[in-house]
Computed example of a mutant assay.
Amino acid sequence: MSHPGDPSPISLELLEILACPACKSPVELKGDRLVCQGCGRRYRIEDGIPIMLIDEAELPDPSGSAG
């Protein structure tokens, strides 16, 4: 459960059960996005709710540079 003042935009319990809908790999929190450890798609979080829609995901940078 998130507590006031927590830096995480979502709860750790939720993060543990989430998986990328595109490739089913685990996701990790990086800043204000959930990033798939498999395909690299980035999913935004709005008001504590991860938007885990494939069509709404940010695709990884094809050049391979982080940013």
Rank of each mutant, 00 (worst) to 15 (best):
residue 7 P to C: 01
residue 7 P to T: 01
residue 8 S to C: 00
residue 9 P to S: 03
residue 11 S to N: 10
residue 14 L to H: 07
residue 14 L to A: 10
residue 15 L to E: 00
residue 16 E to S: 15
residue 16 E to Y: 08
residue 16 E to N: 13
residue 17 I to E: 13
residue 18 L to I: 08
residue 19 A to F: 13
residue 19 A to W: 02
residue 21 P to F: 04
residue 23 C to I: 15
residue 23 C to P: 13
residue 23 C to R: 11
residue 24 K to C: 10
residue 25 S to Q: 06
residue 25 S to N: 11
residue 25 S to I: 07
residue 26 P to E: 06
residue 27 V to I: 10
residue 27 V to G: 11
residue 27 V to C: 03
residue 28 E to I: 15
residue 28 E to R: 12
residue 28 E to W: 09
residue 29 L to F: 06
residue 30 K to I: 05
residue 33 R to I: 03
residue 35 V to S: 04
residue 35 V to P: 00
residue 36 C to Q: 08
residue 37 Q to L: 14
residue 38 G to A: 15
residue 38 G to R: 12
residue 38 G to Y: 14
residue 39 C to D: 05
residue 39 C to S: 01
residue 39 C to Y: 11
residue 40 G to E: 07
residue 40 G to F: 02
residue 41 R to A: 02
residue 42 R to T: 12
residue 42 R to E: 13
residue 43 Y to I: 01
residue 44 R to I: 13
residue 44 R to K: 10
residue 45 I to F: 12
residue 45 I to R: 11
residue 46 E to F: 03
residue 46 E to L: 07
residue 46 E to D: 10
residue 47 D to I: 04
residue 47 D to Q: 14
residue 48 G to A: 09
residue 51 I to H: 01
residue 51 I to F: 05
residue 53 L to A: 04
residue 54 I to D: 08
residue 54 I to Y: 03
residue 54 I to R: 14
residue 54 I to S: 12
residue 55 D to L: 07
residue 55 D to M: 07
residue 56 E to R: 13
residue 57 A to M: 05
residue 57 A to E: 00
residue 59 L to E: 13
residue 59 L to T: 12
residue 60 P to K: 00
residue 61 D to V: 02
residue 62 P to I: 01
residue 62 P to F: 03
residue 62 P to Q: 06
residue 62 P to K: 01
residue 63 S to D: 05
